[in-house]
Design a protein around this nucleic acid. Sequence first.
DNA 1: ATAAAAGTTGAAGTCGACTTCAACGCAAGA
DNA 2: TCTTGCGTTGAAGTCGACTTCAACTTTTAT
Lengths: 148, 148
Amino acid sequence: MDISQVARRSGVPASTLRYYEKQGLITSLGRVGARRVFGPSVIEQLGLIALGQAAGLSLDEIRLMLTPGGTLNVDRALLSRKAGEIDALIKQLRAVSRGLRHAAECPAPSHAECPTFRRLLGEAASGALSKAPAPMARTTKPSGRKPE
Amino acid sequence: MDISQVARRSGVPASTLRYYEKQGLITSLGRVGARRVFGPSVIEQLGLIALGQAAGLSLDEIRLMLTPGGTLNVDRALLSRKAGEIDALIKQLRAVSRGLRHAAECPAPSHAECPTFRRLLGEAASGALSKAPAPMARTTKPSGRKPE
DNA sequence: ATAAAAGTTGAAGTCGACTTCAACGCAAGA
DNA sequence: TCTTGCGTTGAAGTCGACTTCAACTTTTAT
């Protein structure tokens, strides 16, 4: 596969694929002329990378999990820790979600007065203060594609 | 309260408070000499900001929710939408968490072979592809504080 | 009175993950 | 053959949310 095929199949832009290769996250089989040729396993690798990112791992951390060969070489302790962080994040997010819905629905003029809101606020704030784990991908940004 | 008191009470660095004020997210009562003087309500405001951030709102979006006066002026549709995004994110995160735990525990030599892993990978990847909602605060970074 | 501590400013730097750009090479179809 | 178009490169730019810095001015404590 050439780079544009990989891009089409995976949804990952060619520029990103080059970037990932430079970072040692994916490998091309070789070149035909100057052009990269990728094997099918690159798609799977990209899936792994996506999982790692979804888990809040940095590209550096992800690279550590991938053997030069491309198979994975997990740091179980790190994964468990990250899973724990994610679980904690989920808890916080539930509180945030409740807080948002409450703010959206509660017709009270002053949210500051509402004990429910104050409690949720506290949870969200404490979470924010202590800093949470997984910086997720963006939703709002329609950066998905914007080719021509 | 002077800026350092607010910083101490809220855990938000003074530099951030100045930055927030410049961005119009918080307001000081006025100045004594050149120094800002904050009222107690600023703490609550910071809580609101933290909630907004935890919800994945940008500072710009958060500012839209705060009246110049400092009370909140919710865009219920936006909040509901964000809550929905967060709920979706939670779902994805659960899949990611399961994926991580599985990867951490499953002793199989090749995760690529394991159907469970492949499924979770798919979920995570699809989520990553379509981009998710709330970029949470970092956990790993011990940037919490580092005052003196 | 004086020096250390805390406050102020605008400008510039940081960080991660990419994207964009300019300049160029090579290959296949008309 | 020529032109169109994908592919290549390294360098630089982007974005958001801050932080850091240098250069001062003010307080406050001694």
